[in-house]
Design a protein around this nucleic acid. Structure first.
Lengths: 218, 218
DNA sequence: TAGATTGTTAATCGATTAACAATC
DNA sequence: TAGATTGTTAATCGATTAACAATC
């Protein structure tokens, strides 16, 4: 077990870059590289090299070696440790529509320690079915299952109109972190962690950049 | 046509908040409200009221009235105008898997002016099929269709391994903005706008907050 | 009038970037 | 040695927040 500055507060911006580093380092390992230069990694990911080194220094006690860079293997271990990739986090998902199914079927989350153990919906025709080996239950079972399995993370993929009610039910059932894909702001107690996946926000930024790019062409 | 400071550079952080404002204002209109106070909107969205007023000042020439707030109707018009909601942007999508289907079926993008006009995939069994009335074509038709319809935006929902090749093909075909859902960094010319939807990054941030929240409980 | 609200100017805060010495 | 690279300290930059006057 590597001891790193895990308890220090690391900014969200730093944390959100870590999966990119992890992907890059794994790719380089596949190509047979044994060392990773922060300079090259930064260039490949369109980031600043100093920023990369600062991020790595924050999450890992391993230092890079001048001229060589960082040990790829040590970096993978440090990144996975910090991101909790090997520390399985059970989650439940509510809303088995198109997006819910996609997330249930997506295998990539396993790499980051996320394990969806149960799904919930109101549609009776979905009951007793499975998606990607995950059972679908009626909403009435949510509290029971969440409490029994001590599930701390909930994923919301219901329409905006019911998202708040679902979130409230999750919190009542002991959920402490909510990943919200519904296009609505959730009002929750301060001690609950919430991450909103706001596609409209992304689209707004991209549309504006497109507009700027087209204007520059003129 | 309202003349606002559209040509001024507005920061990404500001732009990404605008859809939240728009949703809130629309909600209030549904409830019969005619005026929107920045103070109340900020509180409802867990934002700072000064920030809200600054954002609104940037995108709209309409000023709020002391004691009353902003005209809800005028705000909707200004937000939709700035976000280009009524200015239809045609897009194509590549990768008709689970996520691709979900996006093709999602009606919410219409509110923001996004119109997916064609989908592409390599699987021959998908050809000549439609999803949500959108035709699926083979990859070989991409350039032709993109150029003929002057499509400027592309959505990538293929696996990481093929995303770069798809992106390159899009750029060759005149696409200027790419919304990338594949978990990989794309290397593209500077003049191309790219927005990466990085779920691993979101999950990393949420997992860390959950960890902190659980530690605080001890 | 009193009180809620706006909008501007200044201060703070945090993240990014630059400069540069240290190292292999 | 020369050159690439790291890591630290300082400077810059941009976004957020505070203070407060203006307004209805």
């Amino acid at each position: 077990m590597i001891e790193c500055k895990e308890d220090a507060i690391t900014s969200k911006t730093t944390i959100s870059r870590l999966p990119k580093y992890l992907r890059y380092v794994k790719q380089m390992i596949e190509r047979g590289e044994e060392n990773i230069s922060s300079t090259k990694m930064a260039e490949a990911l369109c980031l600043n090299a100093i920023q990369v080194r600062k991020d790595l220094a924050l999450i890992s006690p391993v230092s890079g070696r001048p001229k060589l860079g960082f040990s790829a293997q040590e970096l993978v271990v440090a990144l996975e440790e910090f991101l909790g990739c090997n520390n399985v986090k059970d989650a439940l998902l509510v809303g088995v529509g198109g997006l819910g199914r996609t997330l249930l079927s997506y295998e990539g989350f396993k790499n980051y320690g996320l394990n969806i153990v149960a799904a919930f919906d109101i549609k009776s025709e979905l009951m007793n079915k499975k998606i990607n080996d995950i059972n679908i239950f009626p909403m009435s079972k949510l509290s029971d299952i969440a409490e029994r399995l001590s599930i701390k993370m909930g994923i919301i993929t219901v329409p905006a109109s019911t998202a708040q009610a679902v979130a409230d039910k999750m919190v009542e059932s002991g959920i402490m972190a909510i990943w919200n894909f519904a296009p609505t702001h959730l009002k929750l107690p301060d001690n609950i962690a919430v991450k909103n996946e706001d596609l409209a926000a992304s689209l707004a930024v991209l549309s504006r950049e497109l507009k700027d790019a087209l204007n520059r062409q003129l």
